[in-house]
């Protein structure tokens, strides 16, 4: 246990990335906010914080899957907006909710196939998908409106035994991802493929008999499904469909993963690091709002933080 804990700070012997850094930052931020402000440690603000953090946390977990194989998904924001638009259509919840995930899975499948079969760079493939999906979303719902099935609203806004329901969304998403990433062959193969890419041995995973293409496609499908989950959550929060609600979410998701120690070259990263990265971003936004920092300054600070943290973990230090 202590060994595992140490690995979060010295990345030499671990493939989990420097997840200790965002953990320290998160703890420090929480302590500073709890003692420095009156409003932070209130029930209302904490509920609010959890609900604010959750869509980013879920989307970042999805992004982790593709970053691990050395990819990127820029269509995450559009998938989120698209999902809210679908949920705001007229129709029974029993149709709309499955439809969101089926369509998102399809988007991930197309992303993955374009990248592996047509050999298009992930940034271009998913950037194109971002535009295409944004266009479709605006056709479906040009401005925000419509209503979302009650069950979605209840699942986002309610609470159980004093615990806000959004927390369960995060637990379910993280639990699912943990099972897949650490408890399945698929997860291990993702690390293997990414490690090969990062070390300049793209063919290595294939010589082990791993179906590289299929695994990469599935990583993009997983990413899109998590994005859809984040979209469903947001729909329940804003109670309508909004073509712009997912704007720039893909970049925040990448930021959260990177702050959490995930290396964009592939093969190095962790679920808990990514979750911590999302928590750091949420705490930062919440704290600066409480301190009345202008949103423009907030954005600049976010960029600076990203640069500082990623600067701590150069590839060479990893020895990978």
């Amino acid at each position: 246990m202590t060994q595992w804990f140490k690995s979060g700070f010295s990345a030499r012997r671990s493939r989990q990335g420097l997840w200790g850094v965002p953990m320290v930052i998160a703890v420090v931020l929480a302590v500073v906010l709890a003692f420095g402000t009156d409003q932070f440690a209130t029930r209302e603000n904490l509920f609010n914080l959890i609900a604010q953090a959750m869509p980013l946390l879920i989307a970042a977990i999805g992004q982790l899957f593709v970053i691990l194989v050395g990819g990127l998904d820029l269509s995450v924001g559009s998938v989120i907006s698209f999902s809210t638009a679908i949920l705001s259509l007229d129709g029974p919840a029993a149709v709309l909710i499955p439809a969101v995930f089926v369509l998102a899975g399809l988007v991930g499948l197309i992303n993955g196939l374009v990248i592996t079969r047509l050999n298009v760079h992930p940034i271009i493939a998913t950037l194109a998908m971002q535009y295409i999906l944004l266009g479709i979303t605006r056709i479906l719902r040009p401005v925000s409106g419509g209503t979302v099935p009650d069950i979605v609203i209840a699942a986002v806004q309610g609470s159980m035994l004093g615990v806000p329901l959004p927390l369960f969304w995060g637990l379910i998403a993280a639990g699912l991802a943990a099972k897949v990433l650490y408890g399945s062959r698929f997860g291990l193969h993702l690390f293997g493929i990414g490690g090969g890419v990062a070390a300049g041995m793209e063919e290595a995973a294939r010589t082990y008999g791993i179906r590289v293409g299929r695994n990469i496609v599935l990583a993009y499908v997983a990413c899109a499904l998590f994005a859809a989950l984040a979209g469903a959550f947001l729909a329940g929060r804003i109670v309508s469909g909004d073509p712009n609600v997912g704007l720039l979410f893909e970049l925040d998701a990448i930021t959260a993963a990177a702050i959490g120690g995930t290396q964009l070259s592939g093969g190095v990263g962790s679920l808990h690091g990514t979750v911590l990265g999302a928590i750091v971003l949420a705490l930062l936004a919440n704290g600066m709002n409480l301190a009345n920092v202008s949103p423009f300054v907030q954005t600049a600070i976010k960029g600076g933080l990203l640069l500082a943290i990623v600067g701590l973990q150069s590839r060479k230090k990893m020895g990978l």
Binding site: R185, L188, I210
Partner: peptide, 24 residues
Amino acid sequence: SLLPNLTIAENMFLGREPLLRGGG
């Protein structure tokens, strides 16, 4: 052709990992 970010055991069994009954 060993993958540097995997453990020795993971490299040894990569592509033919033994599974538990639950699929893990």
